[in-house]
Nucleic acid binder design. Structure first.
Length: 225
DNA sequence: GCGACAG
DNA sequence: ATCTTGTCGC
């Protein structure tokens, strides 16, 4: 299978903070937040590390089968870090290297599982949304912690969930991915709705807190031996 | 004005 | 996220 993961949309990356915010506002209007996908047979987990005390940005992507979660492909891309961490602007720090890694794949994923938020973002334009729009692939944001929003307490048992609310809007689901662990935050990125985002996330879960593709990318990026 | 703040 | 040792729990 050829890699059809290419940019269907592109833009400059050397932006000021206010330009980046304006771009996010515009891009957010192009998001599709309802199901526009076929049942995915491949899923990519993506993650980024910053070795050399942050001087280098290293993106990792691992493609797995669905169902089965067998490892099919992987890629790593590095470049000098050129944008600081600014809450709400994570995309401008991480996406360039992630796109490089995606373009190196031999097998194109049909779904993106991104480390970070989807629409659970001040302008509904988290890193998962950004990657989804640039590739035109269905994408899901998997946050390990909350950027914004409030929610009711989540039951301690695996599968329990509560809506994440911001300005009266449901922007994600706080999901207990296994018994007695800190819940993860699931939010749609592009081309799927909340319910499908949760269903697909559950389908990518193994015996750990994070979905297997994300965990694999985590390790490949060098977060753990 | 005072906190909060993905990775 | 990164830096960084030992330590608590299954």
């Amino acid at each position: 299978m050829m890699n059809r993961t290419t940019r269907v949309l592109d833009h400059r990356w050397d932006l000021t903070v206010s330009e980046a915010i304006a771009l996010q506002r515009d891009m957010a209007t192009r998001l599709i937040l309802e199901d526009r996908l076929d049942a995915p047979r491949t899923v990519a987990g993506l993650d980024v590390a910053f070795p050399d005390r942050g001087a280098t940005t290293r993106a990792a992507v691992v493609v797995m089968s669905l169902p089965g979660l067998e490892r099919l492909d992987e890629a790593v891309a590095e470049q000098p870090t050129r944008f600081p961490y600014v809450p709400g602007l994570l995309s401008f720090r991480e996406v360039p290297a992630l796109m490089m890694a995606l373009e190196q794949l031999k097998i194109s994923p049909q779904l993106l599982l991104c480390d970070g938020q989807g629409i659970a973002h001040p302008r509904r334009m988290g890193v998962a949304c950004h990657l989804g729009l640039l590739t035109d692939l269905p994408s899901i944001g998997i946050g390990k912690s909350r950027l914004l929003g409030t929610h009711a307490r989540v039951d301690e048992t695996k599968g329990s969930r509560q809506p994440l609310i911001h300005r009266g809007e449901t922007i994600g689901i706080v999901l207990r991915s296994r018994d007695r662990v800190r819940p993860i935050l699931v939010s749609p990125g592009h081309r799927l709705g909340l319910q499908t985002a949760v269903d697909l996330t559950l389908a990518c879960l193994g015996r750990f807190r994070l979905p297997e593709p994300i965990r694999a990318a985590d390790h490949l990026a060098g977060h753990r031996p």
